[in-house]
Write a protein that binds this DNA or RNA. Sequence first.
DNA 1: TAGATTGTTAATCGATTAACAATC
DNA 2: TAGATTGTTAATCGATTAACAATC
Lengths: 204, 204
Amino acid sequence: MPKAIILRLESYLSYLAELKALGKTTATSQELANLFGISSSRVRQDMVGLGIVGRPHSGYNILDLQALIRDALDLNARKRMALIGFGNLGRALALSDIWNHGGFDLKAIFDQDTKIIGTDVNGIKVRSMTELFGVIKSESIEAACLTVPGAAAQQVVDMLATAGIKGIWNFSPTELNVPSGITVENQRLEQGLMTLSFKLKEVS
Amino acid sequence: MPKAIILRLESYLSYLAELKALGKTTATSQELANLFGISSSRVRQDMVGLGIVGRPHSGYNILDLQALIRDALDLNARKRMALIGFGNLGRALALSDIWNHGGFDLKAIFDQDTKIIGTDVNGIKVRSMTELFGVIKSESIEAACLTVPGAAAQQVVDMLATAGIKGIWNFSPTELNVPSGITVENQRLEQGLMTLSFKLKEVS
DNA sequence: TAGATTGTTAATCGATTAACAATC
DNA sequence: TAGATTGTTAATCGATTAACAATC
């Protein structure tokens, strides 16, 4: 499935939650299209791809649509995650409620700093990097969130690959090298900021 | 300029820094293409767009290319930024060194929580939201980083718009409504996590 | 019923790749 | 020089839009 479609499904999902909160039970392709300036026919093609059947007068059933999108993105499956790097950003993510929005459960936290190791975070103890391999195995952890400094990222990725991790949510600006069978989703904060810089020049 | 090109320019930039660190002085379109699986002819078209002239044997001069990309993204212009929302994420960003990578200088921090107001962060005092309008004006701040809870986001955006902000780096999952003349760059953490969920299903 | 909205096919658009003469 | 690599044009590909008969 193309990346562009995935991103649209995610946007539909958050908009549908808003509509539902307003008491609506159906949404038309035109309503969804207005959301981010695409044509209603593109939305209908996305709907066909999801396998949902709409009704000529009212549109698509919101509950059905939410369920199908959540299923397409596999958000209902509980996936076990480890966080590597308990710096300011790692700490912010660990304490946030974001994990559940992706169907993830944070199960372990690792850091290198002996001053931090042992800290309790909502019932999860920050562990030493030396425990990484064993804990990922014993806790059946399949995904990792990487919030270590860029210089350390690749080295940690190699450890994660050996331990059998299947997916990485990467916050370091470094382009990671991973063996096949491992997927990386980059959350490029620096690129976001650079894009804002570019856009600022355009608007003014 | 299409978003896809912007993202490529940003990727070229970080790769060029690596090449330069290795002591190289030129890069060919083929090298840059290998980076993320596009064709060398696409890279050459990007180069033409930047206005750089390559040499048939050696490729493009790295220093020239870096300068042109930085110029295209306006990274050399110093832009003054405010951070709104000093929660865990806002705090992590405030303490990070990311701002300079986009050519931004963090000049003010705002939060609603009276327990936090007054805190000193690298010489910047956290201010009350009531000061937002005045400080943005008096400090000539043109951009804002939004790390407030989703429910408060739109309300803050309206204040920022009134104060004359030109660009917003948005970390809230909410789709923001802004008047024309203001640009928003969304840093969708939730969508990143959902995309990872989808990809995990695909690889296994 | 009337007409709003779907599902579907063809047309359009833009971005990417292929190809190749020019050239350092 | 030989050949690697550019700059450029045409071909291809994929994604988006337009159009419209079907239908609730």
